[in-house]
Structures are given as C-alpha cells and as structure tokens.
C-alpha cells in the first residue's frame, strides 16, 4: 500500500523520537556504571604492568580498587621532570585523569606525564616500581600502554599494552600476556647510561635472551610493532628527565631507589 508523504514523515518523526529517548535514557541510566568500569579498567592496566595477569583476574573489582589505593601513589610530572600539582587553570591534577590522547597532540615539552609509583602497602617511601604511561599510533588507530621500571630505573619489570582497532590475531596480539612478557628484564639504558629504548625486531620466533634492548617481534604485524617501538621511545625519552631527577635528588623519597 502507498502511504501519503505526511504519514511517512509523521511515522519517521515519532520513530526517531521514541528510539532517541530510549537510547539517551539508557545512556543516562548506565552512565555511572560505565564510568566505574572505565576507572577499574585503567587501574587494572596500571597494575598489569607490575602484577601477573592471573593475579589480577583472581581479584574481585573491589579488591583491585582497594589494592590500588594501598599500593599505588600517582603524580604528574612535566617534560623537565618537575612534579606539577595544578594545571594552567589552577585545577588539581589527578594522574589517573590525565588525558594522554589529548596530551599526545601537544608539543612534547608541554605535555603532562602521569607517573604511578608502586610501593609497599601503605608505605610510600618504600617503592618497588615506577610505572609510566605511553601512547602512540598503531596501524589502524591509537595504541597505549603502561610500563613498569624496576627501582634501578632501567630494567623493565613489566608492560601492559592496549589498542583500539589493531587487526585481531595480528597487531591485536600486543594485549596478550605472552607478548608483553617478552619485555620483562629488558633495559632502556645501555651500560654507559645512554638512552636506548627497547624495540621489537622484525620477524618472530627468535631468541633475544641476553640482548637488553631487543624484543622478539610480531609476525604479520610489523606496522603495529613499529608503532609500539615509536611509542616506547617517544615517551621513555620524555620521562628521562624525571628519571634523572629521581636519581639525583637525594631528598626525594625515591632516593632509596639508588
């Protein structure tokens, strides 16, 4: 049957309004739960750099948040390695809320860099690892991660990577434990103290045991691997100033690191 134009328009308008209300209603209703889920996810990723994935999986959401509160102290530093507490408008900065994607678009010297210090339970002056955030571009979309450095500020204790749209089974494998574990024990500075970063190599299946700055690559995902390499190099370089400050500053609570 052929309906009049007026009928079609009325029908479309009503349909749009009903569906629109339904969607915005759901979004309102689920908003707070989603926000919590995102927060939990970020904290899980941060902890993932120092804990084994199976340990995190064994914890309930409340336990993870509780563990995070007790063991992680976060701060924000600038490109010179100075701690900053307020942004340009005078708002207090919270490391967990620093939008790394937004900062990525800025001049590296003007970015804010969150630092997460993993320490003994409730005791900030007994650090066990320094976790930094990294961000960059993969093949299709953004990639990000957290990298934990041992107290020598050189040896990598662990990494977690995340991605938005890398190819499943290829580039997306950067989120897998067995890929991330390849970074453990690698070093970012060479023996003379020069910054080297760590880089995935082309091809997969080679053993890079004993090579401090090389990591087995991802077969079929060279561009993602290159993205990961660039991400680590860019951000570790940017954090270098902070690391050096930590090493020099004897009054700092992290001075015990040395």
């Amino acid at each position: 049957m052929q309906q009049s134009n007026a009928y079609i328009i009325t029908f479309s308008v009503i349909l749009t309004v009903v569906l629109g209300l339904l969607l915005s209603g759901t979004s309102q209703l689920l908003g707070p739960t989603q926000k919590k889920a995102v927060e939990l996810d970020t904290k899980k990723q941060i902890l993932g750099a120092v804990l084994d994935a199976s340990e995190i999986r064994a914890m309930k959401p409340e336990e993870i948040l509780d563990f995070y509160d007790k063991r992680i102290t976060s701060k924000v530093v600038d490109a010179e390695g100075n701690e900053i507490e307020e942004d340009e408008e005078g708002n207090t900065l919270i490391a967990e809320n620093v939008n790394v994607a937004k900062n990525y678009k800025m001049d590296p010297a003007k970015r804010k860099y969150p630092v997460f210090i993993f320490h003994a339970e409730g005791n900030e002056s007994d650090p066990e690892a320094i976790i930094v955030q990294v961000y960059g571009a993969g093949l299709w979309d953004e990639i990000w991660g957290f990298l934990a450095l041992d107290t020598d500020l050189n040896t990598i204790e662990g990494v977690t990577f995340g991605h938005k749209g890398e190819t499943p089974g290829l580039g997306a494998r950067i989120t897998e434990g067995n890929v991330q574990n390849r970074y453990q024990g690698k070093k970012i500075f060479d023996e003379s103290g020069e910054f080297q970063s760590v880089a995935m190599q082309k091809g997969e299946g080679k053993d890079y045991e004993g090579e401090d700055h090389k990591v087995d690559g991802l077969s079929g995902a060279t561009i993602t691997a290159n993205g990961v390499n660039a991400m680590l190099e860019n951000y570790l370089k940017a954090y270098k100033a902070y690391f050096e400050k930590l090493k020099d500053d004897s009054s700092s609570e992290i001075a015990v690191l040395n």
Partner: peptide, 11 residues
Amino acid sequence: LVNEVLKAFAY
C-alpha cells in the same frame, strides 16, 4: 543498547 550494557557490565 547491547553495546551500552556490555560497556557497563562487561567492560
């Protein structure tokens, strides 16, 4: 809707 529910309860 499915996507929103997943985001809230199975992130």
